[in-house]
């Protein structure tokens, strides 16, 4: 039975039923390994959130004490609230700007410099985050000295900036796939450019806008590097708070907070998914 070499089996798989990744030797093994690599750490984290001991590695029985302790921890409450505030505002601003940028870069005849503009918009994806973080630290420090303002707007501005490409890309993809004659037809039926946008383009764009918002929201929510450099004293977000805790003493309270965070993110993403699916 094993007389046929593997390469030949693979070739036969190609020739008989067309190429299918699933019919390749070792496909299931590799797939299982990938799933383990992706989910085992998260699974471990969630399990130890229910640990009754102070340890993150020794299991001492099931308990909800770390959830209780985390939910009574004012610092965690404060950080969660701030994380969500920043994520909502930054994702909203980034989506609005991403939408406008996407329209400006698709509803135009190609011209010299258009690719350069794509690169400019997507700069946060290209430049290493740590470089942006240090640059923002320096610039914001100077502005803080000039204006005396040290509030949350710096974090919101920084998050908005790096969220823009995440909002922009799905919206642009949606716009590029849209039938241009629909807008022409609207103009033919007495809709001026503004009415065409609000009645035709925007409703059809909505799944792209929602996808963009979702991505921007999640990216803002779990940012550490830029937030760590930009935040002033007392402006912890949940990720930076957790980072701070790990530096001090490790307790499963961090696991509990992370689990809570995970559940909230999954809920938010699922909600967005169902909203966008309902629209179509």
């Amino acid at each position: 039975m094993c007389a046929v070499p593997h390469a030949k089996v693979a070739l036969m798989a190609i020739s008989s039923r067309g190429f299918s990744v699933k019919s390749q030797v070792g496909f299931s093994t590799i797939a299982l390994l990938c799933i383990f690599a992706l989910y085992l750490p998260i699974f471990t984290l969630v399990v130890y959130a229910f640990n009754d001991t102070d340890s993150m590695s020794l299991w001492g029985g099931f308990s909800l004490r770390w959830f209780k302790s985390a939910s009574h921890n004012v610092a965690i409450q404060d950080a969660v609230l701030r994380s969500f505030q920043i994520a909502i505002i930054a994702a909203t601003l980034a989506t609005a700007m991403g939408t406008l940028a996407a329209i400006a870069t698709t509803r135009t005849a190609p011209y010299r410099g258009l690719n350069f503009k794509y690169a400019l918009i997507n700069q946060p994806l290209i430049v290493p985050e740590i470089v942006t973080a240090v640059a923002l630290l320096i610039v914001f420090a100077r502005i803080k000295v000039w204006t005396g303002y040290t509030g949350g707007a710096y974090l919101v501005a920084a998050h908005t900036a790096f969220c823009i490409p995440f909002a922009y890309l799905p919206i642009r993809a949606r716009l590029e796939g849209m039938d241009l004659t629909l807008e022409t037809a609207a103009a033919d039926l007495y809709a001026n450019p503004w009415n065409t946008f609000t009645n035709i383009t925007l409703p059809l764009l909505l799944p792209g806008v929602i996808a963009g918002y979702m991505l921007a929201f999640v990216v803002s929510l779990d940012d550490v590097v830029i937030t760590e450099f930009v935040k002033s004293g007392g402006q912890e977000t949940l990720p930076t708070y957790m980072l701070g805790q790990i530096k001090k003493s490790i307790t499963p309270e961090v696991n509990a907070a992370a689990t809570f965070f995970l559940v909230l993110s999954v809920l938010a993403v699922t909600a967005f998914y169902f909203i966008s699916r309902k629209k179509h």
Binding site: D179, T181, L182, T184, A185, A186, D188, I200, P203, L204
Partner: peptide, 13 residues
Amino acid sequence: INTVFQNYALFPH
């Protein structure tokens, strides 16, 4: 002036 388009261009939403 109104147009009937080749692909109809009906508004899908």
